[in-house]
Design a protein around this nucleic acid. Structure first.
Lengths: 130, 130
DNA sequence: GTATTTATTGCAACTTACTTGCAATATTAT
DNA sequence: ATAATATTGCAAGTAAGTTGCAATAAATAC
């Protein structure tokens, strides 16, 4: 893993992730930082940040990669025990859900990692509320 | 959902799925049917077959869409209760796993569907066997 | 602080997955 | 058989993501 230099572009992105509540797609970032940095730079920085475990990513059901900051979740810094991700069918926002999904063991298969993508209606879009 | 006509290309693909053991990516299909049909035809047929619930698809961790035939799984033809998918880190093959993963309920979220992507070592690649 | 090393950036060009318009063709219904 | 229309192949287009490279900026050594 390469050293990450504190450039303006890197700091902008890190700051953005610190403030962001929801995972964002690369395309959102490219649009957001349209005037300040090149898309290739964004791709490369995200790669480095993920390699250094400062952010994590998942692929949503459209095949779009989304990134979110990596909050430390207790002691589980490793690959296992990741949280599920949620995408709202209504507003399109996604979230990292703070729950644990247990994986049944499957005979003859060694399961090393798991990614769970849930879809439905999020907090803000539920009919009864508001 | 449009009517699906029994053309040669459609039948070739249906036959392929009947025989296939593992989910395949579109790119695999394009390569396989390179000389017999155009890639745009493949994309369109897959769309129709999925729309008619004859096959299903999922996005694997590389963002690649994979298709597999839809075997009827008891009474759960609907969207819920889908099986998890598995991709082998060694040989790259994928499988539909015949197990059920239970999803914890999350307060304020309505969960309508779930996609589980497991990765690890498959049956054929486990060290001890063979 | 200055010089040196090396990571990082922007740009443009490129690759690749996927889509679309359209005229020709094949399938189904009449 | 005829008519209606779904499907196909082709070629061209779109868009996401990648790459090479020269210029620049950060970190390190002096």
């Amino acid at each position: 893993m390469a050293v990450i230099r504190k450039t303006k572009t890197v700091e902008s992105l890190i700051n953005f992730f610190k403030k962001s509540e929801h995972p964002v797609s690369i395309l959102d970032l490219i649009e957001k930082f349209d005037t300040t940095m090149d898309k290739s730079t964004i791709y490369r920085i995200l790669e480095r940040l993920e390699g250094s475990n400062m952010i994590h990513s998942f692929i949503d059901s459209d095949g779009v990669k989304r990134y979110a900051q990596l909050k430390d979740e207790g002691s589980s810094i490793g690959k296992q025990e990741k949280h599920p991700h949620f995408v709202c069918n209504d507003c399109g926002n996604s979230s990292c859900l703070p729950v644990k999904i247990s994986i049944p063991s499957v005979p003859d298969y060694i399961i090393e990692s798991a990614e769970h993508l849930l879809k439905g209606i999020c907090k803000n879009c539920t009919p009864q509320v508001k």
